[in-house]
Design a binder for these strands. Structure first.
Lengths: 300, 300
DNA sequence: ACTTTAATGAAACATTTGTTTCGATAACTG
DNA sequence: CAGTTATCGAAACAAATGTTTCATTAAAGT
């Protein structure tokens, strides 16, 4: 069981000295250790976008004679892990509390997240998501509102959406301009409102205002009868149950992301091109960090 | 096609009707399920003292088309993907594309989310989260930085953290004050940086600056060798793989939330009281919508 | 500028893989 | 008993795997 850690550590410590292509391979291995254990070397190379020879060379570079050796150590790691996620959590529940309380809490969180995702992507919800997309695709302007803990979900959608459409508005109420941003909202627009109990007044007001202007509302919330879901054309109900003290909006983020994915899939090639343009612009603005060129002369 | 529900059950129930040699193979499979997932069919046959053809025949006998299918289900069990999801997704893949393409996409997203959560909350990562909490709990000030798509994760943490501690700073670079917000950062503070490839320059710069000031860094990122993870005291690696076009930061949000939960658990009663106070304040500011009193005649 | 070196991907290579074929053997049936 | 069937394993097969080779290219050194 020590073999695995050694190889992984070696991969990390030697990373800087590796050639660019080997870095690509090493990185994929570090990020997808299970691929090493379960898939073939060639399959891994394909996934990493690297010729098979590079992987072989990488083995030599980190002092491993053969891919089989490397793979074995990763398989052992898999075998050391308790078999099942559910089993893991259950086992922890039965163990002494003090040392494992943290671990138990984390496992509970993970379990809750998975359960929430499962509910949010149940068949009926998927149908509702598709309906929601129809409305969004037809809309003149797409407003998104989410305050407090729900803000990340709203932001996430607005950020991604703006990469391929210019008619998205994140109603974030900066500088108190909460009302301003909704000015002009009407029947041909759509408002996506994110919130869960306790509902934040601003969000409820925004929904009420939109409804009064006959603007269709898509509600991402915790109940079919949530105040922001009344008369909504699509109610995307996400469970926010969490063992932690706070309500969990992570599932809302997932749902918002799924909406974006649906829109992109619907938009086809044209949307992809727009995204490419947006990315170019970001690169031109020097937004992204250029990865360090592999230090050639810094080898040990 | 057909009975994917549980191949192991099928093996057990049909065991009596199988030919002696097939029973030998079946028995070995039942006794050594991991061999199915990790080793080759021929290797398994050797271990079971059976010619390869027997295994192939066994597959046909239990109604499985190909060894690959069989092996996949055992690999999934190892990876602990909830079976229902894997199967649902696979079933949809085989269905007519046009109507179900959206459904398939959504199922893939759900599946990916669950897999990502599973990885992020693997035992080793849980250890790292606990380490990270130690640093946060000791810190004089807690800085959080995340730009672009990673912003929701950073925001989520800052928002929740501020409910029970006043030493949290969300480095969001509003009004270009990106540098200002990091002024005074030092060895007794901690910087939590969230980001994935492509890394946004601001985030990388923030990390570099913090490191120069000898401030410990907690990196929530997509790789052990991410630029923002260099020399980090805790590297929380979250996979951002997603079938959608965009990288998925939902797992990062989950991890950030888990950090908060750990901190709250660690803080005990005192923290809970502070949260109660914070909520009272919010209520006093009229932040929350008062739910309509259940109208008497609107019984469910 | 030229030489030397390192890096890279395509192709070739020998194995190994999962599957199929086919003759041999055993078991059962009439 | 003969004849049919079911079972089995060796061999053949195409497809894949992991590795090595080699020519080409890009970078460093002189």
């Amino acid at each position: 069981m020590g073999v695995y850690t050694d190889l992984r550590e070696k991969l990390i410590s030697d990373y800087a000295t590796l050639s660019p292509q080997m870095q690509k391979a090493a990185r994929h291995i570090l990020d997808h250790p299970n691929d090493v254990a379960l898939r073939s070397m060639r399959a891994l190379a394909r996934a990493a976008n690297v010729p098979p020879s590079t992987v072989t060379r990488l083995m030599a570079a980190i002092g491993v004679d053969t891919w089989q050796q490397f793979r074995d150590s990763y398989q052992n790691r898999l075998l050391d892990l308790p078999a099942s996620y559910a089993h893991r959590a259950r086992a922890l529940q039965n163990s002494e509390a003090d040392i494992h309380r943290d671990a138990h809490l984390l496992q509970s969180i993970a379990q809750a997240e998975i359960a929430n995702i499962g509910q949010a992507f149940a068949p009926e919800m998927c149908e509702r998501m598709k309906d929601a997309c129809e409305h969004i695709a037809r809309a003149r302007q797409v407003f998104v509102v989410g305050r407090g803990a729900a803000y990340p979900a709203a932001y996430q959608f607005a950020y991604a959406y703006r990469l391929f459409n210019e008619n998205g508005v994140l109603v974030d109420g900066h500088a108190g301009a909460f009302g301003d941003q909704l000015r002009g909202i009407g029947p041909r627009d759509v408002l996506i409102a994110v919130g869960a109990r306790p509902y934040i007044r601003d969000t409820v007001r925004a929904v009420a205002f939109a409804r009064k202007q006959h603007c269709p509302v898509i509600a991402v919330c915790d109940s079919d009868v949530a105040p922001i879901a009344v008369d909504a054309v699509a109610k995307l109900v996400v469970s926010d149950s969490s063992p932690s003290f706070f309500q969990s909006f992570t599932t809302s983020v997932s749902v918002m992301q799924a909406l974006v994915a649906l829109l992109v899939a619907r938009g086809g090639q044209k949307v992809l091109q727009r995204i490419a343009v947006a990315e170019e612009q970001l690169a031109a603005f020097d937004t992204y960090h250029e990865e360090a060129a592999p230090t050639r002369n810094s080898r040990s």
